[in-house]
């Protein structure tokens, strides 16, 4: 009896404890936010990049149709805007888009940067065009966070070149500063300047020619070929003709991204100028429809100065690779002419 009476209150107490514990358990703890790992990958997904490419292409199409450069501004900037404006001007004057570079809206390779700051630069290599023109390497840039990505530049790849490999879009490629040549055979800015020197002087006169591995159909070949043609024009020597070309790299307009092998893809702008002078009284005709259009209805004189806004793409290999800097592609467009 005694044991029973002792045990029963115990049971009552334990039951009360258990039930109160159960009720106390009802109050669920409020979760705290668990911030994930900081982003270190690409700033864009492939889908986003595709959307950007299509948006840019749509803008280009619209501007190509209206041939008004104002339509470009939403999605075109930098050197590309300059060039495109010029091309649209020529197109409008000639009522033909013959000399407007076509930029396909597809992409065979996207190169997406990894960065948490602005500006951000992404690259895209388009497919080969329907008319068998070589693929374009297009550069997009987001200047600030509140701005959209815009086409900053494009180049046409040189046929037969060996493109470097790039990191997968899910990994992203590291952007490099133009003067960051620590792991490269030359800093991107230097490589560009040297290339400009070669373009200006030709492979024979430039001292940097040895450090470059130049394809047969790059900008050097083009400019020097043109110069050769001009100089070889009948009567050129008789008229005391002088033809000089000068290309300089724009220091600010250089975009660099690291390739998969540790090298760098460099896209930069060369300001070019060709100057043709003859003896007094002679008349120099424009060489091309573009120049003619740019000249307008100015009367021909014995002088012709043509300005170019050229974009070039170079591959700067890593330091100890033993490779030379390669020229990958270029865009050679006359944007001004005067006499």
């Amino acid at each position: 009896m005694n044991r029973r009476t002792v045990r029963r209150p115990l049971a009552v107490v334990s039951a009360a404890v258990v039930s109160s514990a159960l009720l106390a358990g009802c109050a669920e703890e409020i979760p705290a936010p668990q911030a994930g790992e900081p982003f270190s990958g690409p700033v864009l997904t492939e889908e986003q990049d595709v959307a950007i490419i299509e948006a840019v292409s749509a803008t280009l199409d619209k501007a190509d149709k209206s041939r008004t450069s104002a339509d470009l501004k939403a999605r075109v900037t930098g050197p590309a805007l300059e060039v495109r404006k010029s091309q649209l001007k020529v197109a409008k004057a000639n009522d033909s888009n013959e000399f407007v570079t076509a930029i396909p809206n597809n992409s065979q390779q996207m190169i997406i940067p990894t960065t948490n700051t602005w500006p951000r630069t992404s690259f895209s290599i388009t497919e080969r065009l329907e008319n068998m023109e070589t693929p374009r390497l297009v550069v997009f840039e987001q200047d600030t966070a509140r701005k959209p990505y815009k086409m900053w530049a494009w180049v046409q790849l040189v046929p037969g070149i060996n493109m470097p490999h790039f990191a997968d879009t899910r990994i992203g490629s590291e952007p490099l500063a133009p003067d960051d040549g620590e792991l490269l055979v030359a800093s991107p800015a230097d490589a560009l300047a040297q290339y400009a020197d070669i373009v200006s002087l030709g492979t024979k006169k430039s001292s940097f020619a040895d450090t470059f591995d130049l394809p047969d159909a790059d900008l050097v070949a083009r400019v020097q070929g043109d110069a050769k043609n001009v100089r070889a024009t009948p009567g050129f020597d008789d008229a005391d003709g002088k033809y000089t070309v000068e290309f300089t790299a724009r220091e600010d307009d250089v975009r660099v991204v690291r390739t998969a092998d540790g090298g760098a893809l460099v896209v930069g702008v060369l300001d070019g100028k060709s100057k043709l002078t003859t003896e007094e009284g002679a008349e120099v005709q424009a060489y091309s429809k573009t120049q003619e259009t740019l000249l307008g209805d100015a009367d021909p004189t014995n002088k012709l100065v043509v300005g170019y806004t050229d974009t070039v793409a170079l591959y700067v290999p890593p330091k100890d690779s033993g490779e030379k800097v390669r020229s990958l592609g270029y865009s050679h467009v006359a944007t001004s002419a005067s006499n």
């Binding site: 602005w118 200047d143 600030t144 966070a145 509140r146």
Partner: peptide, 14 residues
């Protein structure tokens, strides 16, 4: 990124 933002905003009317 404060300064760059403002400047760019002022610059870019496009």
């Amino acid at each position: 990124e404060a300064a760059a933002d403002d400047e760019a905003a002022a610059d870019d009317e496009a």
